[in-house]
Design a binder for these strands. Structure first.
Length: 597
RNA sequence: GGUCCGGUAGCUCAGUUGGACAGAGCAACAGCCUUCUAAGCUGUGGGUCACAGGUUCGAAUCCUGUCCGGAUCACCA
């Protein structure tokens, strides 16, 4: 199937070839949708072609325009404004384009696994000492959406999660529970397990601070106090016991992590997020040591007098970086080296995407350089999808100051707001409780997901819990509403027995009708672009533009009334196709669309 | 201090590999529902694209410098 982009590129380069005897490189061919203020469907920028035509812009444009309308039946008209050649395509062309896609439910998507490429996307990666918050939500939504986008362009995608389930921070909540918990469990506390554990993490910090203050009162410096506080010493002792596989500590660790996993399960389910595979650091943290030993042998790494192992990356503009501590234990990056090698090996990966915040850019830069030095050719195919922070109007979220927006709370609030809104508008009359519940969930989550995904991943964003989430304007619900409207019309058409809409006769079309068909043809290209740029935001913005355009069309066109059969079929067919594009675009964002709302 | 990212309307954000007079939404104001869903549509006001140079037919976009904000430069993960 020919995309609109390649159809246009072929036509223009054919014209240029015949007229000027030159093959044009893709980059000098600048084709864009014609600016709304001018007549035409697509515009060729002729400035870059003056070198080969050796004529003025107007003459060059006229040459090409004339050639196209006399040799390609799809082109019917053209005009030239300054250096811009605006061409119009025939109604027959647009109608047949529409017809070709009316039965394609997967419109916009490539054939599954058609590229033969294996891609792994790692995201979420929570710590098991506290519940998920707004920052994790951005991570999860991005990772999930990017996975679907990469899948939609034909890759075999594997979504994985690497849970950080060990380390001193985990011991802190364990210790606090042991000391102050009195055997409390999620059941007795009637609380999600991740929240319960998170409370003890906060408790640790509180008690720890008191101890520090006491020690400072006894004359110790801040630094000394932090190091000598009994709680910290105990936590460190607990970590040593964990590493020595002390039965009691391991049992406590398993119990508390179990609580957290149960809690995470619910949050993931609420968000509609899933993984093919979950890795646990407790099982992978020793990976990479063998590779480091080998690299040391090869002279890629070096050993310092104290026994620690390093790599010198000053040639790459970075610093020296430690890979093994003096006592032989590994650090974070050691594990990442190990898991990367293991994964590329096991799954024959062509690409590995890490969805991790931008504060770890340095880390991933180091990781890539190390793997390259070790001779792994695929190191160029590690991609750090680095996203910006989510800030509150007051600034950064700080867990210690209790300004963190909790994921579960936020989801609940969104669904509640959706319900209030729907009630106010009288949208839910005639639906039973189950249907009401479903619509509010879909709409509430749609609002949240869209709000986060419409922003370019690499940008920091501001989230105002009270004001940010809107249900009107450039929002998820606006797009969902448009979809529901379309379904409503299609239902009505079926009820009225309107014939098969996959055959559309050629009739005169209004500007809006042409514009809508044109927009839908751009969808496959947008998906491609979103995949190359790892940007769900492109999909989100496309869906919005399309929905906005459709609502204008809907407002001043009658679809089922006062129209001929031909016009009815055309408009229904356009509606169906727009609905399909919206549905598929939203699917790529991980957002459901309701049949009514 | 070094490196990376950002600075577009009062607020939140778009702006395709440089292209036509910089666009949406929110907020404000004024209109449109006996007719397919008004979570919609239409209109008004709102800009020195941080600043200064440069490159070119053309710069919000590329280059240089300056200012502001963020991240990072741990034997933390």
């Amino acid at each position: 199937m020919l995309t609109i982009e390649s159809f246009l590129a072929n036509s223009f380069s054919n014209a240029i070839n015949i007229l000027y005897g030159t093959d044009i490189e893709g980059s000098t061919l600048q084709i864009q949708k014609t600016h709304p203020d001018f007549k035409g469907d697509f515009t060729l920028v002729v400035f870059p072609l003056l070198k080969v035509s050796k004529k003025k812009p107007e003459e060059t444009g006229a040459d090409i325009g004339n050639y196209l309308i006399s040799n390609h039946k799809e082109f019917v008209d053209f005009n030239i404004v300054k250096g811009f050649l605006n061409v119009s395509l025939s109604n027959a062309f647009w109608i047949s384009t529409l017809e070709n896609s009316t039965n394609d439910e997967q419109f916009g998507f490539a054939k599954p696994k058609s590229t033969g490429r294996h891609v792994m996307v790692e995201f979420s990666s929570p710590n098991t000492n506290k519940p998920l918050h707004l920052g994790h939500i951005r991570n999860n939504l991005l990772g999930f959406s990017v996975s679907r986008i990469l899948e939609a362009v034909g890759n075999d995608v594997r979504k994985v999660n690497l849970v950080n389930d060990r380390g001193i921070h985990i011991c802190k909540s364990m210790l606090a529970w042991q000391k102050f918990g009195n055997g409390e469990t999620p059941q007795t506390a009637n609380k999600k397990g991740d929240h319960l554990v998170g409370d003890y993490y906060v408790r640790f910090d509180k008690e720890y601070k008191i101890q520090i203050e006491n020690l400072k009162a006894q004359g110790l410096t801040e630094e000394e106090a932090k190091q000598k506080a009994p709680l910290m010493l105990e936590a460190q002792e607990m970590l040593r016991k964990w590493e020595a596989k002390d039965a009691e500590v391991i049992a406590l660790w398993e119990q508390m992590n179990g609580w957290v996993y149960e809690g995470f399960e619910k949050t993931y389910a609420n968000l509609g997020i899933s993984f093919e595979k979950v890795y646990y650091e407790s099982q992978t943290y020793l990976l990479g040591k063998v590779i480091v030993a080998w690299g040391l042998e090869q002279g890629v790494f070096f050993r310092k007098p104290d026994g620690s192992v390093w790599i010198d990356l000053t040639a790459e503009g970075l610093d020296e970086k430690v890979l093994l501590r003096a006592d032989g234990t590994s650090v974070y990056i050691t594990q990442d080296i190990g898991t990367a090698v293991q994964r590329f090996d096991e799954f024959h990966l062509n690409e590995h995407v890490y969805v991790v915040g931008n504060e770890q850019e340095y880390h991933f830069s180091v990781l890539k350089h190390i793997l390259k030095r070790l001779g792994y050719m695929w190191s160029d195919h590690l991609f750090h999808l680095s996203y910006g922070m989510v800030n509150l109007p007051e600034g950064k979220m700080k867990s210690r100051e209790g300004t963190v927006v909790d994921a579960d709370d936020l989801i609940t609030e969104m669904i509640e707001t959706a319900r209030e809104m729907a009630n106010e508008l009288g949208k839910l009359d005639g639906l039973n409780e189950l249907e009401v519940e479903q619509v509010c969930r879909v709409v509430g989550l749609g609002a949240l997901k869209y709000f986060i995904l419409k922003v370019d991943p690499k940008k920091n964003m501001t989230f105002n819990p009270r004001e940010s989430i809107d249900f009107n304007g450039n929002t998820g619900p606006f797009i969902q509403y448009t979809y529901a409207r379309i379904q409503s019309v299609l239902r009505k058409a079926t009820d009225e027995g309107v014939a098969n809409i996959s055959r559309v006769s050629v009739v005169e079309m209004t500007e809006k009708e042409r514009e809508l068909i044109k927009l839908t043809t751009l969808f496959p290209g947008i998906v491609q672009q979103a995949a190359t740029q790892y940007s769900p935001a492109l999909i989100a913005n496309f869906a919005y533009d399309l929905a906005k355009e459709y609502n204008q069309f809907y407002h001043d066109h009658s679809i089922l009334r006062d129209t001929t059969e031909e016009v009815k079929q055309l408009r229904l067919s356009i509606s169906a196709q727009v609905g399909r594009c919206i549905k598929n675009a939203m699917w790529l964002l991980g957002i459901d669309v309701p049949n009514r709302m």
